[in-house]
């Protein structure tokens, strides 16, 4: 029983990180229609921005985290300007290859800057743990879940209660209509990329202490984020959260109770099943294809 609780919390924490990555992915997809194959590398950049600010530069926690967010925001804006704008009218497949190329570029720039040796990103709660129902649970895992929950709340507030967020949703629903209503569509699109980069940065900071940070960590995260968004429903924010947590839990619980070798097969098997039987996922859009 205590094992189960421990696994459950770990799965929830991992799932929260996947959910953050999936939310970033979904925000970009619904606003711009781009399936971002570099979304895993976005998270990796977040982790390594953390490595350079906290380990290399030795900044204090608050300043270091803030610096990471600044870096990620700048990065998101740069991505919008250098990749999205020139390629925005290309077919879906070209966009896929474009984001893949960017992902390879990011991964190798990180390789040049940091080398292939893995790092361990510290957490402010390192070494602390909580005893619950006879189980020992790392304080960091609990923080990940709490921070994610808080962030989802904030995000909801941003998208539903602020003019900027409502504008972003309008752009996501109908770009032409939004433009006709006088919204500055490009600025809102840029904001979606920035928001996605910020979420990825946070996911990277939270994931770093749970995994070893290495420049190749992007692809596995992106694959899990894809699976999460398909299961939850492509383009749906609640779906991304539910899907992310589902994938995290299956990964951790599946590894201990079913087979550690096939733990990822469960998530992808369920993803394919969803695509075939219920392509709109748990909460998603009804249309099979908008690209």
């Amino acid at each position: 029983m205590s094992d189960l609780i421990q696994l459950f919390v770990n799965g929830l924490a991992l799932g929260s990180v996947y959910a953050l990555a999936a939310i970033g992915f979904v925000i970009v997809y619904s606003a711009t229609g781009v399936v971002n194959f570099a979304s895993g590398q976005f998270v990796m950049f977040g982790t390594f921005a953390g490595v350079s600010m906290l380990l290399d530069a030795g900044l204090p926690w608050a300043v270091g985290y803030l610096a990471v967010f600044v870096v990620m925001a700048v990065f998101g804006a740069g991505f919008f300007a250098c990749l999205y704008l020139p390629l925005r009218k290309s077919p879906v497949a070209t966009m896929i290859i474009g984001t893949v190329a960017i992902g390879i570029l990011m991964q190798n720039v990180a390789l040049l800057a940091f080398g292939s040796w893995p790092f361990r990103l510290p957490s402010p709660l390192d070494g602390l743990s909580v005893h619950m129902f006879g189980a020992v649970i790392s304080a960091h895992a609990l923080m990940v879940v709490a921070v994610t929950a808080l962030l989802v709340g904030l995000l909801w507030f941003l998208l539903h209660r602020t003019p900027v967020g409502i504008g972003m949703r309008a752009v996501a629903q109908d770009m032409r209509a939004a433009r006709l209503m006088g919204l500055e569509v490009n600025r809102l699109l840029a904001l979606s990329w920035i928001l996605a980069a910020l979420l990825a940065g946070l996911a990277g900071l939270l994931l770093g202490p749970m995994w070893f940070a290495d420049v190749n960590m992007g692809d596995p995260i992106a694959l899990k984020a894809f699976a999460a968004s398909i299961i939850g429903g492509f383009g749906s924010l609640p779906g991304a959260i539910a899907g992310g947590i589902f994938v995290g839990l299956t990964e951790v619980l599946g590894a201990s109770y079913i087979s550690s070798a096939y733990k990822d097969l469960i998530a992808f098997g369920i993803m394919i099943l969803f695509l075939l039987v219920r392509p709109q996922g748990l909460f998603g859009e009804r249309i099979q294809d908008r690209g």
Binding site: L275, L276, Q288
Partner: peptide
């Protein structure tokens, strides 16, 4: 192949990973 666009892309990607 009832799926189209990026849905097909992600389904086949999942197939390859599997």
């Amino acid at each position: 192949l009832r799926l189209k666009g990026h849905y097909l892309a992600l389904a086949t990607l999942g197939l390859n990973v599997s």
